[in-house]
Design a protein around this nucleic acid. Structure first.
Lengths: 122, 122
DNA sequence: TTGTATGCAAAGCGTTTGCAGTGAT
DNA sequence: ATCACTGCAAACGCTTTGCATACAA
């Protein structure tokens, strides 16, 4: 990631402006507004570069294709709307869940996904 | 799902005997022990039939290919070993997580995945 | 000028489907 | 004898990669 191109700038700004995890298709569609002709391969290559640079985070929800969001520092979870399918950040967490697993299992970390209606769809 | 074939019987028994969610490849490998020549398409078709019949449940963990397990009645979660990658059932749950989402969001259900070392790998 | 970054098309990988042949009833 | 089921291969959707060209430095 050594050069600053129109494509990379557009992709970075789209993810930054979203405020929620976006799919590759959402990133492509939004980026093509400012860069018509942008190819999906370029989106994938830049996503990989931005991930490696630590600028964005991978968000993998159960049964969903990967999404990407601006890198957060703090631990958080996600909420998916069952109507519009969009994903939102949730910055609260019930705890570590150590002791929830049966004896002999050592819990190191956890992933929590909430499902329901977002404010727009409620 | 009207006929009882060697293939279907083998697949059903493999899932039943596992006691944990299996991937399609694990199901194929284990089923081929008793039914050599079994094709992957048959595994997929039977998985779909068993799902529709309610005999097995779909388990989708973040970033993982689908797994399948014998249908449980009770609410539960999953634990994935970070070393052997296997997935185990966890029959405890901290609660409903309602109120964890920001105002305006209505939580209907949740998915929780724990990660760490299983007894074999600890 | 140099070589990274891009666009296109082909290739990969897991999953689904079409089709002719197999086998449970 | 039927026709649901199977195996094989082609098709699919998403992601990655090869290659020639474009453009940032």
């Amino acid at each position: 990631m050594e050069r600053s191109t129109r494509q990379r700038t557009a992709i970075r700004q789209v993810i930054e402006a979203a405020g929620r995890p976006l799919s590759t298709q959402e990133i492509l569609d939004a980026s093509q507004v400012s860069v018509p002709g942008l190819g999906i391969a370029t989106v994938y290559r830049n996503i990989k570069a931005l991930l490696e640079a630590g600028e964005i985070d991978l968000v993998t929800l159960p049964g969903e294709n990967p999404r990407y969001e601006q890198a957060h520092q703090k631990h958080h979870h996600h909420f998916q709307c069952t109507r519009c399918q969009r994903v939102f950040d949730v910055f609260s967490c019930p705890g570590s869940f150590k002791g929830m697993a049966p004896p002999g299992f050592e819990v190191e970390r956890h992933e929590l996904t909430l499902y329901g209606r977002c404010p727009d769809c409620a």
